[in-house]
């Protein structure tokens, strides 16, 4: 075997590549066909959505910003158990629990989430936290306009995440609905706030 053989093979390929047939100009009809596609498109219905003026609703189960829900009387559903943080694959959730007392009650039961932070720059909106939540305290909304100009602003605190107080709700901390305990809350037997729950 001489060493020249591979080189010759390459030379041969180079020679062959010279003879690539080049297509000539297309016929007039072919060109018109192309223009017709463009022309006909003018009469089609416009599909553009005029965002931001028009906002099409997302799919109902779209994974948007989180929300911390409340019981019907305003107590927080979050018990600070950190299961959401445990489930989070991106380590985007930070929770610190604390003790509820009868004077300072934020949620039914012994424990509430004192610190609740979601880092939206880490969050991948996978929804595993929602699946993990034992009290349905954490759910996702369809809100998606989250962009901001600093990292700090995209770490949402508990105040940012808590659901707004609807009518009939009281701002925690406040005691249980009279005559009920945590089990009644979990079984949905508390449906509204009672005036005696208000704390000065």
């Amino acid at each position: 075997m001489s060493e020249l053989e591979p080189k010759r093979a390459i030379d041969g390929a180079a020679e062959e590549s010279i003879h690539i047939p080049i297509a000539g100009p297309a016929s007039l009809f072919t060109q018109l066909k192309g223009f017709w596609v463009t022309f006909a498109a003018q009469f089609k219905k416009v599909t553009t959505v005029q965002y931001p003026e028009v906002k099409e609703p997302t799919a109902p189960r779209f994974h948007g910003r989180h929300q911390l829900n409340r019981h019907p009387d305003g107590l927080e559903k979050c018990i600070g158990c950190e299961l959401c943080a445990w489930a989070c694959p991106a380590d985007a959730i930070y929770v610190e629990g604390a003790d509820n007392s009868d004077e300072q009650r934020y949620s039914p039961g012994e424990r509430y989430g004192k610190v609740y932070q979601i880092n939206y720059l880490r969050c991948i909106f996978c929804g595993l936290c929602i699946e993990a939540c034992p009290t349905r305290a954490l759910t996702m909304t369809n809100e998606y306009e989250l962009a901001d100009d600093s990292r700090k602003k995209l770490i949402f605190e508990k105040e940012d995440l808590l659901a707004p107080l609807r009518s009939g709700m009281l701002q925690p901390p406040h005691p249980y609905y009279p005559g009920t305990d945590d089990q009644d809350y979990y079984h949905g037997r508390v449906t509204e706030a009672h005036p005696s729950q208000e704390q000065k």
Binding site: G80, E82, A85, W86, E96, G97, A98, D99, E110, R111
Partner: peptide
């Protein structure tokens, strides 16, 4: 240590 953290933390 009451309610301070979870093992995975």
């Amino acid at each position: 240590y009451r309610f301070r953290s979870r093992p995975f933390d």
